[in-house]
């Protein structure tokens, strides 16, 4: 079992290593390079749909990385860069879609789920409060059954 888990882990990590794509770009400083890495990590490849353009080897991803780099050099802001790619390839390339009427449910689902959970918890709490701590957990009839069961057990042990 441990061996299988280990094998899985090795496979998983080797996949990540193999997916890395090396491009040679010059950046004036660390911060710029980090900014570039963040940008290409949050843009999605339209061809190989479950990869970002940082990981993808598709020619179109290379073109998109080139475009990101070029626009950065030209002094464009992150929003301008993302907008320009969205204008060409569609909302699809955003891994973080904008909040609008179409994506409302997508963004609101976690909040709705948490709210639903809270309501259920609140309902359970209120119901148990209403029953009151002093009201006995078992009715007289149930108590009699339990007593009988315990007595039976004592007899046989």
């Amino acid at each position: 079992m441990v061996r299988i888990v280990y094998l899985m882990l090795v496979l998983l990590l080797s996949g990540a290593a193999a997916a890395e794509v090396a491009d040679v770009y010059d950046f004036s400083d660390r911060a710029q390079e980090q900014r570039y890495q963040n940008l290409i990590a949050e843009l999605r490849c339209p061809k190989c749909q479950n990869q970002n353009i940082a990981d993808s080897n598709a020619p179109i991803s290379k073109d998109m990385r080139d475009a990101v780099y070029r626009m950065m050099k030209d002094g464009a802001s992150n929003e301008e860069i993302v907008e320009s790619l969205v204008g060409r390839f569609g909302e699809f390339v955003r891994y973080k879609p904008e909040f609008d009427s179409r994506t409302f449910l997508l963004w609101a689902t976690p909040a709705i789920t948490v709210l639903g959970g809270l309501l259920v918890v609140a309902g359970v709490v209120i119901r148990s409060r209403r029953a009151g701590p002093e009201s006995p957990a078992l009715s007289a009839e149930e108590k009699a059954r339990v007593d009988k069961m315990l007595a039976d057990r004592d007899r046989w042990s």
Binding site: P46, A58, I60, D63
Partner: peptide, 12 residues
């Protein structure tokens, strides 16, 4: 060089 293709959003 695929410049117009890029502007058209051609991905394949």
């Amino acid at each position: 060089r695929g410049t117009l293709g890029f502007d058209l959003g051609v991905y394949g």
